[in-house]
């Protein structure tokens, strides 16, 4: 079994030399961060776990194309973002196919700042949460992913562009459109503030 202490690059050299087990160390090291970003994009625990597995599978298969100058963590993170985006897209298509069916409540979650969860506000905060959830649902998969990467993962537009395979300007536009849509959708909340 590959020792956990070795660097990512040493592990990759070992894998390419035939030591499959060395990949276990990379998987153990990067699973948590991949799960975090996958969950933030997908909003569903089971799907996020699937995305993590798929990303590591794609990563293993593409390891020969990994450039030794790059950072494995960044590289596998981008793969996970692409997997999550694909999953989001196919889920959206499936939902469109099932017109009229009720959507599952855990389908998509967006956690909102909860500064005063007093009993009197519970009903209202539930409605607000649903509204924010629906606002996030209104975004396209690219907008949602770009927004999550910028707003929650604090990635630059260059990084978002590379992760999504689009130009930085297009990434910027996607984030801006997301912000615009979210603000428009959440405008009624401002009246109550």
């Amino acid at each position: 079994m590959f020792r956990m202490g070795k660097s990512d690059h040493a592990a990759i050299r070992a894998i390419l030399a035939g030591d499959k087990e060395a990949y276990g160390a990379l998987v153990a090291r990067h699973s948590q961060s991949l799960f975090r970003v996958a969950f933030r994009i997908i909003g569903n625990e089971a799907d996020a776990e699937d995305v993590v597995q798929e990303a590591f599978l794609r990563g293993y298969r593409g390891l020969e194309g990994f450039e030794s100058r790059s950072n494995f963590g960044t590289w596998i993170y981008r793969i996970a973002v692409r997997c999550a985006l694909d999953r989001l897209g196919s889920r959206r298509r499936n939902e469109n196919d099932r017109v009229g069916e009720e959507t599952e409540p855990e389908r998509s979650q967006v956690q909102v700042a909860d500064s005063a969860p007093g009993p009197g506000r519970l009903l209202l905060s539930g409605e607000i949460g649903a509204m924010r959830e629906s606002a996030m649902q209104s975004l396209t998969p690219t907008e949602r992913t770009a927004f999550v990467l910028r707003h929650m993962e604090e990635r630059t537009t260059e990084e978002i562009g590379v992760a999504l395979g689009i130009q930085p300007n297009a990434a910027k536009q996607a984030v801006f459109r997301a912000v615009e849509k979210l603000r428009r959708r959440l405008a009624p909340l401002r009246v109550n503030r």
């Binding site: 969950f39 909003g43 967006v110 700042a113 924010r132 912000v179």
Partner: peptide, 11 residues
């Protein structure tokens, strides 16, 4: 407005 949308804390 943007501060209202806090980062999602994964389980």
């Amino acid at each position: 407005d943007l501060a209202e949308i806090a980062p999602i804390d994964p389980p």
